[in-house]
Amino acid sequence: MNIIGLYNYWIVVVLMMIGFYVVIAHENLIKKLVGVSIFQTSVFFFYISMGKISGATPPILDDHYQLYSNPLPHVLILTAIVVGIATTALGLALVVRIQEAYGSIEEHEIQDQDTQDQMESRLEAYGFRKKHVLSVQNLDE
């Protein structure tokens, strides 16, 4: 069993880094969220790996078995998965609203529009009138 020694962990690290890279390098807001979930899932995998004992069974007590894997990482990761889905759901809701407000979910396009907003408010500070911006919020209420 020891052949793979740390192999498992190294793969986990590679996975984490792919996820992490997707989060910070990509500009599409949905893709970032996919990256986050890959990143997190890999961390979960890391926790579960450390709870494993070779030749053991799942920690559901039964007279037939003696050796059980460690239940504590499982409990932690159950919680973490829930936190993960909660974050994803909220993030997606935000993405939907951003799409409605900006007409895009690409980071740089949003930034361009924000810069324009900022220019306008800068002009406004020096006495120019701000263009009317239709916000989706108005439609909602």
Binding site: T41, I48, S49, G51, K52, T57, P59, H74, I77, V82
Partner: peptide
């Protein structure tokens, strides 16, 4: 890896 509960949750979530 013996984490049946977690597997269940990960699959459904």
């Amino acid at each position: 890896l013996d984490a049946v509960d977690v597997a269940f949750t990960e699959a459904s979530v």
